[in-house]
Design a protein around this nucleic acid. Sequence first.
DNA 1: CCTATTCGTAAGGGCAGAAAACAAATTAAT
DNA 2: ATTAATTTGTTTTCTGCCCTTACGAATAGG
Lengths: 420, 420
Amino acid sequence: MRDTTGAGGTGPACDQDRSTILRGSSGQEGARGRPASQQGMRQHNLALVMGTVAADGPVSRAAVAGRTGLTRAAVSSLVDELLAGGLLTELGPASNGRVGRPGSALAVSERGPAGLGLEAGVGHLGACVTDLRGEVRVWTQVESANAALAPAEVLARLSALADDATRQAAELGLRPVAAVVAVPGLVGDVPGTVDHAPNLGWHDVPVASLWPGELPLRVENEANLGALAELWAHPVAADFVHVSAESGIGAALVVGGRLFSGARGLAGELGHMPVHPEGSPCSCGARGCLEQYAGKAAVLRTAGVTGVGGDVIEALAARAGQGDARVLEALEQAGTALGTALAGAVNLLDPAAVVLGGAYAELGAWLLPSMRRELAARVTVRSWDPDALTVSQLGRRGPLLGAALATVRTILEDPAALWS
Amino acid sequence: MRDTTGAGGTGPACDQDRSTILRGSSGQEGARGRPASQQGMRQHNLALVMGTVAADGPVSRAAVAGRTGLTRAAVSSLVDELLAGGLLTELGPASNGRVGRPGSALAVSERGPAGLGLEAGVGHLGACVTDLRGEVRVWTQVESANAALAPAEVLARLSALADDATRQAAELGLRPVAAVVAVPGLVGDVPGTVDHAPNLGWHDVPVASLWPGELPLRVENEANLGALAELWAHPVAADFVHVSAESGIGAALVVGGRLFSGARGLAGELGHMPVHPEGSPCSCGARGCLEQYAGKAAVLRTAGVTGVGGDVIEALAARAGQGDARVLEALEQAGTALGTALAGAVNLLDPAAVVLGGAYAELGAWLLPSMRRELAARVTVRSWDPDALTVSQLGRRGPLLGAALATVRTILEDPAALWS
DNA sequence: CCTATTCGTAAGGGCAGAAAACAAATTAAT
DNA sequence: ATTAATTTGTTTTCTGCCCTTACGAATAGG
């Protein structure tokens, strides 16, 4: 995005509200804001240094000072604090061939605080630990027919998996400080509560309360976490729309590098975008919703793929690869419907990119052509670059990765919270 | 929106980037942020005090301190600076009947710095001056067939109108510090430039360069300014969608109390949302766009209103009021199409409200029923309150008012910029 | 070996808000 | 009427943070 003011003059200030990685507001929290204090200043600058080191690889204090606008003295003080907290590591003098005393390279620690991501899917459970660099250090998934279990039982099993992952992390010198669980359902107003997860059979499940583990737990929709994983692991733009199909068709919106969750946290419902207003009736009561044409069930039905055990997406991709005409036709039709709906979203939001993620990522080869065609035909007011529609490299791993990275990002955005 | 962390603990800090009232980003400006300085702290707290006084009417220093979390001493210092700058006025001791020494009431000054709003419509020019309280103090409009004139000539006439308004303002003790002009067209990447205003016949017009006036001038799309006027003058929510039809059908998105302009500043195009994908061809090349059913031209055609001189919207409202069946039918159909398109937007964005503004506001009585019906039918995933769809009280006055208020908000968000 | 350059640190200063103390103005009680 | 209690606004002292300036340390080049 832009800043029309030349600005840059007086170093302004800080960040509006932190810890808004998940379910975060975009500003204005009812109150007109909180007073700026020197502690807040320190917080901001700690995060600034941390972020610079994280983004620009091993760098010297002087380089950090140059890039942030802080003085070397200030950076030294901030780095000292981050070193003491175990968030940064000093790699020692690194001669770079240039004249002058070589700087001491700083890097984000690969030990110490970490993020624990969890996933409760319909047919599996997952756990993942990432270090502060964002690297995946532990990754576990087990099959589990969660829809047939009570929520508490699912969470008990997930907690066991989390304990296992935490043990493995401990051997690597990593200490998860918080956990985030990805669920295929709506996470609305009440924090830590799943409003509605039809595929799991969950309704108003107070996950945070039922959680037997000791780490603080937050819940988030898996589509949103998949989008954030894309943002954090493979950043292509700060403003994009991430489309994925798990339960329904979700469009996570990333605005200015932050997840946009709407007034009640329910933004991103793309599945019921009208595509053929007079078309087939949808379970939502309306007619011609996108889900009726591009939803998982609709695609399988049109493709004639029924009663396949195991991974239906893989089966679909396999048949498409073999040239199964009916499957190709179904995917082409789904792509057209997706493209039509996305065209509306693109016209409305003007994102820098559209990312096809989740299960759709694996079908990208067959969905992209018709999506691109429809987008090109319908996004004409502005110039639309066909390459702005891309396929996620993370696919179905996105949500679990995003869940772990969410905690890491929280630490990076407020390092002082760890030890103060 | 929400903040799931209890937070509130250590007073955090400041605001990310100021002067982002128009064309503002939502954070992350490429650089990872600028360092927090003591000047930035002061800036933030000045704005905090200013905002508190502006929002809560005449209040004492102690009340400001209580509401903001600053100490009384700090508030005193900040208020002194704002008084010296002429942004606040001391109304003197005001006994409120409670025990203790009465506080001295502070109010936003009704003299001094002000905002100048300008409007270049298809058939008229407008100028408006608002004081820091947001009150309209000068309001002038003249007819002018701008589409038949060269942009430079339009701006020359507008400048004369602006000078006139500035003179009137001076008599009231008001001194406009910046001007914003509302235009019915796309304002894209280049600041101060209108990319495309079909109804004016403008293409890539460098308005800021052509401007003969002396005040700094910024350009913004009139639909966006209308939405901001709604936000600032009649705040109903911090997250809403504002629909208006001037040239095309624009949906300005307000997210967290800020205008969302998309990656390239082109967000908000609702006119080409697919409503009947196989329907009548649209000028954009696609088929069945909303504009073909709810655009001004489409409504007039369906309503059988042709060749009416003067204000076609007023004519339409008059005939609808008389019970003209064809007009009623046209408006009902337009409302249905609008509702369908908005349902998609609501599902996608989960706004707290939808506001019908601009010319549509005057037709609200006939558009609302079918819009509400369609929204209720299509927004079913979440609960949808029919009253969340409201009609703007500003109507076509919105853009001009918003243009003037934009400057006022800029001052309120960074008072120090005026004298530093 | 000496100089120029760059890096990291240390000392002094300025600035902003916090904390505490104080004077002023009002209400309530004596 | 007088005194006590309470709230307000200011003053003073203190702390914390970053900036400026200065200095030792370490390297490359002459």
